[in-house]
């Protein structure tokens, strides 16, 4: 892929207060690319994702969307960029006072001029794409955790954003739903050229659909491997922590 990056992270330093979680983080994400952020628990994956989504400012460094400096610009510009992205949170984060259809419809009502009927059909389509056809009038409290997660993805897809952030999308999903989600991600990448930034421990997904990835290491507080997961595994220079993660499975690698 040789297109201009949609997202560029440059020399990011992330943390809370005085505590530095990660430094010298840099990478590019291009249109139609599936980008995975990997690493053990507590290494800063979700903090990095929150910085990319506009929810937690980095301590240093820059994030660019196209040519716009995400955190360097004013808040209005940042909100403009955030509107062009979608996010799936770990627990789904659905608005509990609204039905699933209303959850998906809200941003369509706010940011498009679509008619009521078109909005309803858009919401039904997005729910059908994640396997929730017929559940439009259910409240989040009336469905299972896995269904809530899928509904969260439908909401993230509402505006067909060019970039989607998914935090642990497969966690809590059954294998069939997890595979279906991977298929959907691939189809959206291929048809709408949607870029995905995904935080995940799901090795099957990582190897099946990742175009690019980084591995964050809690020990060195930096990126210790990057590239396609298959290439990382084959590279003899790959650090042990990343190799353990990709060959032995997720957080258990830390103890290996």
């Amino acid at each position: 892929m040789t297109t201009e990056p949609l997202l560029r992270a440059r020399d990011l330093q992330l943390g809370y207060g005085e505590f530095v979680l990660m430094r010298h983080v840099g990478f590019d994400v291009r249109a139609g690319e599936i980008f995975f952020i990997m690493g053990g628990s507590g290494c800063g994956k979700s903090t990095l994702l929150r910085a990319l989504m506009g929810l937690h400012p980095p301590q240093a460094g820059q994030i660019f969307y196209g040519k716009q400096d995400f955190w360097g610009g004013d808040e209005g510009a940042r909100h403009g960029i955030m509107r062009r992205t979608g996010a799936l949170f770990q627990g789904g984060a659905l608005w509990s006072s609204m039905t699933l259809a209303e959850n998906v419809s809200l941003v369509l009502e706010e940011y498009t001029g679509l008619s009521e009927g078109d909005i309803r059909d858009q919401a039904s389509l997005k729910l059908a794409l994640v396997g929730l056809a017929g559940f439009e009038e259910y409240y989040p409290s009336e469905i299972s955790g896995g269904m809530r997660k899928r509904a969260g993805l439908a909401r993230a897809l509402a505006l067909d954003p060019p970039m989607l952030f998914l935090d642990e999308p497969s966690a809590g999903l059954d294998p069939v739903s997890s595979r279906m989600l991977d298929d959907l991600v691939l189809e959206l990448r291929d048809t709408l050229h949607t870029a995905f930034v995904i935080v995940s421990h799901e090795l099957a997904s990582i190897f099946a659909i990742a175009d690019n990835s980084i591995f964050l290491d809690a020990g060195t507080r930096s990126i210790t491997a990057s590239g396609k997961p298959d290439d990382i595994v084959r590279d003899p220079k790959t650090e042990m922590s990343a190799l353990n993660f990709l060959t032995r499975g997720g957080d258990r690698s830390v103890a290996a």
């Binding site: 794409l129 929730l132 279906m180 298929d183």
Partner: peptide, 13 residues
């Protein structure tokens, strides 16, 4: 994919 998982019988309300 939009038709892959049909609405469960009795689920729609």
């Amino acid at each position: 994919m939009a038709f892959a998982v049909p609405a469960q019988e009795g689920a729609a309300r």
